[in-house]
């Protein structure tokens, strides 16, 4: 018994023992980043000419959109890597990243809808950017639902890798949709230059840095949690088989 527990803890790492997964420095760092980003976005940056103060939702909207794209990119790379290396730890990273991406895609759609009500006078319109983003939300929903349905870890990893690679086809399309088709959605970056004032640009990058740090933090936390769950499952199986033999 003591042995089994020791093995499992060794797999999860010392964090399982202390109960403090990533510690105070992360929390402090995130606090500083979000404080700075929030200050730049809500107090320092100027009102927009037409949209006034409502433009400030832009800093959140762009940041969560960037994060959704990043999270799905990590899922895509993890999916390819899994099929090449067949390492279940890679699958864990990919799955957790898709989960975070889906949550942040929801945030993109919600913040976008709120902003659209102000800027376009409608909660929703079938613009190419909105359409492709909604399809992306559905694609990764299917990815997550499929994972729930497959119990053998190797099968689950392989089939979700296939779906992860297929689903990612839409992600660059979401990004490029405003350039490819006539879209009412604004494009803020063109050929490496941004259509923003320096203070707005600084606020945007501050928020991007903050959410990216948040992503890294939550990704590591969830991966550790999933590893602990798997270790417990393995422990339970071992105990059960021991109970049957004695």
């Amino acid at each position: 018994m003591a042995n089994a527990t020791g093995d499992a803890v060794a797999q999860v790492g010392p964090a399982a023992r202390t109960g403090r997964p990533t510690g105070i420095p992360w929390a402090a760092g995130l606090l500083v980043l979000f404080w700075f980003g929030g200050f730049m976005a809500f107090l320092d940056s100027p009102d927009a000419q037409v949209l006034g103060a409502t433009v400030r939702i832009f800093y959140i909207h762009v940041a969560v959109a960037w994060l959704a794209g990043l999270a799905f990119l990590v899922n895509w790379m993890g999916s390819i890597l899994y099929l090449v290396r067949r390492d279940l730890r890679v699958d864990r990273w990919a799955a957790v990243s898709a989960e975070i991406g889906e949550v942040f895609t929801t945030a993109v759609l919600v913040t976008g809808s709120i902003w659209a009500r102000v800027a376009w006078n409608t909660w929703w319109t079938w613009d190419p950017r909105l359409t492709t983003a909604l399809v992306m939300w559905f694609l990764y929903l299917a990815y997550l639902v499929l994972r729930e349905g497959v119990s053998r870890p190797e099968s689950r990893a392989a089939v979700s890798a296939v779906v992860g690679i297929v689903a990612f086809v839409d992600v660059p399309v979401v990004f490029l949709s405003t350039r490819w088709w006539r879209s009412i959605h604004p494009v803020i970056e063109q050929n490496g230059t941004f259509a923003l004032s320096p203070h707005m640009l600084l606020a945007m990058f501050a928020m991007l840095a903050a959410v990216t740090a948040f992503y890294v933090y939550i990704l590591r936390l969830r991966v550790r949690q999933e590893a602990a769950r798997d270790a417990i499952e393995a422990m339970r199986l071992r105990l059960r088989s021991r109970g049957e033999t004695s």
Binding site: V135, F138, L139, A142, Y143, G149, V159, V166, A167
Partner: peptide, 25 residues
């Protein structure tokens, strides 16, 4: 491809359209 993938899942017949239709939009 998606029929093959979802055939591994419990309730795969429910997951299949969920994966198929967004992909084929």
């Amino acid at each position: 491809l998606l029929a093959a993938v979802t055939s591994h899942a419990r309730a795969g017949e429910a997951v299949f359209p969920l994966a198929l239709f967004p992909v084929t939009v």
